[in-house]
Protein backbone atom coordinates (compact mmCIF):
# COMPACT_ATOMS: atom_id res chain seq x y z
CA UNK A 1 0.00 0.00 0.00
CA UNK A 2 1.48 3.32 -0.97
CA UNK A 3 0.87 6.60 0.77
CA UNK A 4 0.88 9.96 -0.93
CA UNK A 5 2.88 12.74 0.66
CA UNK A 6 -0.41 14.28 1.75
CA UNK A 7 -1.50 11.01 3.39
CA UNK A 8 1.74 10.92 5.32
CA UNK A 9 1.39 14.51 6.44
CA UNK A 10 -2.15 13.92 7.71
CA UNK A 11 -1.14 10.67 9.37
CA UNK A 12 1.75 12.36 11.16
CA UNK A 13 -0.40 15.25 12.32
CA UNK A 14 -2.94 12.81 13.73
CA UNK A 15 -0.40 11.28 16.12
CA UNK A 16 1.45 12.96 18.98
CA UNK A 17 5.24 13.35 18.87
CA UNK A 18 7.31 11.54 21.47
CA UNK A 19 8.80 14.76 22.77
CA UNK A 20 6.07 17.20 23.74
CA UNK A 21 7.72 19.64 26.20
CA UNK A 22 4.42 20.90 27.72
CA UNK A 23 4.01 17.31 28.94
CA UNK A 24 6.99 17.54 31.26
CA UNK A 25 7.64 13.84 31.78
CA UNK A 26 8.17 13.37 28.04
CA UNK A 27 11.47 15.28 28.32
CA UNK A 28 13.42 12.52 30.06
CA UNK A 29 11.61 9.65 28.40
CA UNK A 30 11.15 10.53 24.72
CA UNK A 31 13.77 8.96 22.43
CA UNK A 32 16.36 11.63 21.60
CA UNK A 33 17.96 10.01 18.56
CA UNK A 34 16.30 9.61 15.18
CA UNK A 35 14.16 6.52 14.81
CA UNK A 36 15.58 3.81 12.56
CA UNK A 37 13.59 2.59 9.56
CA UNK A 38 12.69 -1.07 9.57
CA UNK A 39 13.70 -2.61 6.25
CA UNK A 40 11.31 -5.51 6.43
CA UNK A 41 7.72 -5.87 7.49
CA UNK A 42 7.20 -6.54 11.14
CA UNK A 43 7.62 -10.25 11.66
CA UNK A 44 5.13 -10.48 14.46
CA UNK A 45 2.28 -12.90 14.12
CA UNK A 46 -1.21 -11.57 13.58
CA UNK A 47 -1.50 -10.75 17.24
CA UNK A 48 -3.18 -12.37 20.15
CA UNK A 49 -6.72 -13.62 19.68
CA UNK A 50 -9.17 -13.10 22.49
CA UNK A 51 -12.47 -14.94 22.73
CA UNK A 52 -15.48 -14.03 24.79
CA UNK A 53 -14.26 -16.69 27.24
CA UNK A 54 -11.33 -14.47 28.15
CA UNK A 55 -13.76 -12.08 29.82
CA UNK A 56 -15.15 -12.37 33.34
CA UNK A 57 -18.78 -11.67 34.14
CA UNK A 58 -19.05 -7.99 35.03
CA UNK A 59 -16.06 -6.94 32.93
CA UNK A 60 -18.32 -4.85 30.69
CA UNK A 61 -20.28 -3.27 33.54
CA UNK A 62 -18.06 -1.35 35.95
CA UNK A 63 -21.07 -0.51 38.12
CA UNK A 64 -21.73 -4.18 38.90
CA UNK A 65 -18.39 -5.34 40.24
CA UNK A 66 -19.18 -4.86 43.92
CA UNK A 67 -22.07 -5.40 46.30
CA UNK A 68 -23.30 -1.81 46.00
CA UNK A 69 -23.64 0.77 43.27
CA UNK A 70 -20.77 3.22 42.76
CA UNK A 71 -21.39 6.92 43.26
CA UNK A 72 -21.53 9.13 40.20
CA UNK A 73 -23.32 9.70 36.95
CA UNK A 74 -24.01 6.35 35.29
CA UNK A 75 -22.94 6.20 31.64
CA UNK A 76 -23.19 3.77 28.75
CA UNK A 77 -20.31 4.03 26.29
CA UNK A 78 -20.80 2.53 22.85
CA UNK A 79 -18.74 2.67 19.71
CA UNK A 80 -17.43 0.98 16.65
CA UNK A 81 -13.86 -0.09 15.95
CA UNK A 82 -12.85 -0.01 12.28
CA UNK A 83 -9.55 -0.19 10.44
CA UNK A 84 -8.17 2.57 8.24
CA UNK A 85 -9.94 1.09 5.23
CA UNK A 86 -13.28 1.28 7.03
CA UNK A 87 -13.66 -2.44 7.73
CA UNK A 88 -14.99 -3.43 11.16
CA UNK A 89 -12.41 -4.89 13.52
CA UNK A 90 -14.07 -7.99 14.96
CA UNK A 91 -13.07 -9.68 18.18
CA UNK A 92 -10.88 -6.77 19.26
CA UNK A 93 -10.08 -6.78 22.95
CA UNK A 94 -10.60 -3.38 24.58
CA UNK A 95 -9.15 -2.83 28.05
CA UNK A 96 -10.42 0.24 29.89
CA UNK A 97 -9.43 1.95 33.11
CA UNK A 98 -10.54 5.14 34.76
CA UNK A 99 -10.81 7.22 37.93
CA UNK A 100 -13.95 7.16 40.05
CA UNK A 101 -16.53 9.96 40.11
CA UNK A 102 -14.40 11.92 42.55
CA UNK A 103 -11.35 11.77 40.28
CA UNK A 104 -9.47 9.13 42.29
CA UNK A 105 -7.87 6.00 40.87
CA UNK A 106 -7.83 2.79 42.83
CA UNK A 107 -4.04 2.71 42.63
CA UNK A 108 -1.44 2.82 45.38
CA UNK A 109 0.40 5.74 43.76
CA UNK A 110 -2.65 7.97 43.43
CA UNK A 111 -2.33 10.48 46.26
CA UNK A 112 -5.17 12.80 45.23
CA UNK A 113 -7.12 13.74 48.38
CA UNK A 114 -10.44 12.56 47.00
CA UNK A 115 -12.30 9.53 48.36
CA UNK A 116 -12.00 6.03 47.01
CA UNK A 117 -15.33 4.41 46.25
CA UNK A 118 -15.62 0.92 47.78
CA UNK A 119 -18.04 0.05 44.98
CA UNK A 120 -15.81 1.05 42.09
CA UNK A 121 -12.55 -0.45 40.82
CA UNK A 122 -12.39 1.34 37.47
CA UNK A 123 -11.28 -1.62 35.34
CA UNK A 124 -13.25 -3.06 32.42
CA UNK A 125 -12.76 -5.28 29.37
CA UNK A 126 -14.91 -5.82 26.30
CA UNK A 127 -14.54 -7.56 22.94
CA UNK A 128 -16.00 -6.14 19.74
CA UNK A 129 -18.78 -8.04 17.99
CA UNK A 130 -19.04 -9.02 14.33
CA UNK A 131 -19.73 -5.44 13.30
CA UNK A 132 -16.82 -4.11 15.36
CA UNK A 133 -19.17 -2.71 17.97
CA UNK A 134 -18.63 -2.58 21.71
CA UNK A 135 -20.44 -1.16 24.72
CA UNK A 136 -19.86 -0.94 28.43
CA UNK A 137 -21.51 0.62 31.45
CA UNK A 138 -19.59 2.77 33.91
CA UNK A 139 -19.78 6.04 35.79
CA UNK A 140 -18.46 9.34 34.51
CA UNK A 141 -14.93 9.78 35.87
CA UNK A 142 -14.02 12.98 37.70
CA UNK A 143 -11.28 15.41 36.71
CA UNK A 144 -8.13 15.04 38.78
CA UNK A 145 -5.12 17.22 39.58
CA UNK A 146 -1.55 16.41 38.59
CA UNK A 147 1.73 18.19 39.04
CA UNK A 148 2.65 18.83 35.43
CA UNK A 149 2.24 22.61 35.66
CA UNK A 150 0.61 25.28 37.81
CA UNK A 151 -2.96 24.32 38.71
CA UNK A 152 -2.91 21.33 36.38
CA UNK A 153 -6.07 19.22 36.08
CA UNK A 154 -6.72 16.38 33.70
CA UNK A 155 -10.04 16.61 31.88
CA UNK A 156 -12.35 13.67 32.62
CA UNK A 157 -11.24 10.70 30.54
CA UNK A 158 -11.38 6.94 30.17
CA UNK A 159 -8.20 5.10 29.15
CA UNK A 160 -8.63 2.67 26.25
CA UNK A 161 -6.22 -0.08 25.11
CA UNK A 162 -7.13 -1.84 21.87
CA UNK A 163 -5.80 -4.83 19.93
CA UNK A 164 -6.49 -5.02 16.20
CA UNK A 165 -5.06 -7.12 13.41
CA UNK A 166 -1.48 -7.03 14.67
CA UNK A 167 1.28 -4.96 16.16
CA UNK A 168 0.74 -1.94 13.86
CA UNK A 169 -2.88 -1.77 14.93
CA UNK A 170 -2.08 -1.67 18.63
CA UNK A 171 -3.48 1.51 20.18
CA UNK A 172 -3.67 3.04 23.63
CA UNK A 173 -5.66 6.24 23.83
CA UNK A 174 -8.01 8.26 26.03
CA UNK A 175 -11.67 9.07 25.54
CA UNK A 176 -12.77 12.52 26.64
CA UNK A 177 -16.21 14.04 27.25
CA UNK A 178 -17.86 16.78 25.19
CA UNK A 179 -17.65 20.41 26.31
CA UNK A 180 -15.07 19.75 29.00
CA UNK A 181 -13.63 23.18 29.94
CA UNK A 182 -10.30 21.56 30.86
CA UNK A 183 -9.53 20.31 27.35
CA UNK A 184 -7.89 23.54 26.10
CA UNK A 185 -5.47 23.43 29.05
CA UNK A 186 -4.49 19.77 28.81
CA UNK A 187 -1.04 19.09 27.31
CA UNK A 188 -1.84 15.42 26.79
CA UNK A 189 -4.96 16.06 24.71
CA UNK A 190 -3.20 18.91 22.91
CA UNK A 191 -0.16 16.80 22.03
CA UNK A 192 -2.01 15.75 18.88
CA UNK A 193 -1.14 18.42 16.31
CA UNK A 194 -4.18 18.19 14.06
CA UNK A 195 -7.33 19.74 15.49
CA UNK A 196 -9.81 17.39 13.86
CA UNK A 197 -7.75 14.37 14.98
CA UNK A 198 -7.79 15.79 18.48
CA UNK A 199 -11.54 16.28 18.44
CA UNK A 200 -12.04 12.64 17.50
CA UNK A 201 -10.82 11.76 21.00
CA UNK A 202 -13.87 13.52 22.41
CA UNK A 203 -16.88 11.24 22.70
CA UNK A 204 -20.28 12.47 21.62
CA UNK A 205 -23.37 12.53 23.77
CA UNK A 206 -25.69 9.92 22.24
CA UNK A 207 -29.41 10.36 22.78
CA UNK A 208 -30.24 6.99 21.23
CA UNK A 209 -28.00 5.16 23.69
CA UNK A 210 -29.21 7.14 26.69
CA UNK A 211 -31.64 5.09 28.80
CA UNK A 212 -34.51 6.75 30.65
CA UNK A 213 -34.14 6.77 34.42
CA UNK A 214 -30.86 4.90 34.10
CA UNK A 215 -27.82 6.27 32.27
CA UNK A 216 -26.46 8.82 29.78
CA UNK A 217 -25.10 7.49 26.51
CA UNK A 218 -21.81 8.45 24.88
CA UNK A 219 -20.42 7.31 21.56
CA UNK A 220 -16.70 6.83 20.94
CA UNK A 221 -15.60 5.33 17.62
CA UNK A 222 -12.03 4.21 17.09
CA UNK A 223 -10.03 3.75 13.89
CA UNK A 224 -7.03 1.40 14.08
CA UNK A 225 -4.19 1.30 11.60
CA UNK A 226 -4.43 -1.67 9.29
CA UNK A 227 -1.67 -4.19 9.82
CA UNK A 228 -0.38 -3.60 6.30
CA UNK A 229 -0.12 0.18 6.59
CA UNK A 230 3.30 1.51 5.79
CA UNK A 231 5.31 2.76 8.73
CA UNK A 232 5.06 6.41 9.62
CA UNK A 233 8.07 7.58 7.65
CA UNK A 234 10.16 10.56 8.69
CA UNK A 235 8.69 10.31 12.13
CA UNK A 236 10.25 12.91 14.31
CA UNK A 237 11.55 11.49 17.56
Amino acid sequence: MTHSAEDRRVLLASQPPYLHPPYVSSKKRAPARPLVALPSALASFKGPVFGQDSLQPGDCDLTKQHSGEPLGERIIVIGKVTDDDGHPVRGALIEIWQANAAGRYKHKNDSHAAPLDPNFSGCGRVITDNEGRYSFVSIKPGAYPWRNHENAWRPAHIHFSLFGAGILSRLVTQMYFPNDPLLPFDPIYNSIPDESARQRLVSQFDWATTQPEHALGYRFDVILRGNRSTPMENTRP
Binding site: M1, H3, D7, V10, L11, S14, Q15, P16, Y23, T82, D84, D85, G86, E95, I96, W97, Y105, K106, H107, N109, D110, S121, G122, C123, G124, H159, S161, L171, V172, T173, Q174, I188, Y189, S191, I192, A197, R198, R200, L201, V222, I223, L224, R225, G226, S229
Partner: peptide, 19 residues
Protein backbone atom coordinates in the same frame (compact mmCIF):
# COMPACT_ATOMS: atom_id res chain seq x y z
CA UNK B 1 -5.70 4.00 3.86
CA UNK B 2 -9.03 5.79 3.60
CA UNK B 3 -9.46 6.92 7.19
CA UNK B 4 -7.03 8.55 9.59
CA UNK B 5 -6.34 6.38 12.62
CA UNK B 6 -7.33 7.54 16.09
CA UNK B 7 -4.59 9.44 17.92
CA UNK B 8 -2.51 7.75 20.57
CA UNK B 9 -2.39 8.97 24.17
CA UNK B 10 -0.16 8.02 27.08
CA UNK B 11 -0.99 5.05 29.30
CA UNK B 12 -0.38 7.40 32.25
CA UNK B 13 0.84 6.27 35.67
CA UNK B 14 -2.11 4.08 36.64
CA UNK B 15 -2.28 1.67 33.71
CA UNK B 16 -1.92 -1.37 35.93
CA UNK B 17 -5.63 -1.04 36.79
CA UNK B 18 -6.54 -1.89 33.22
CA UNK B 19 -3.54 -3.79 31.89
Amino acid sequence: MKFIPTGSQTVGPFFSIGL
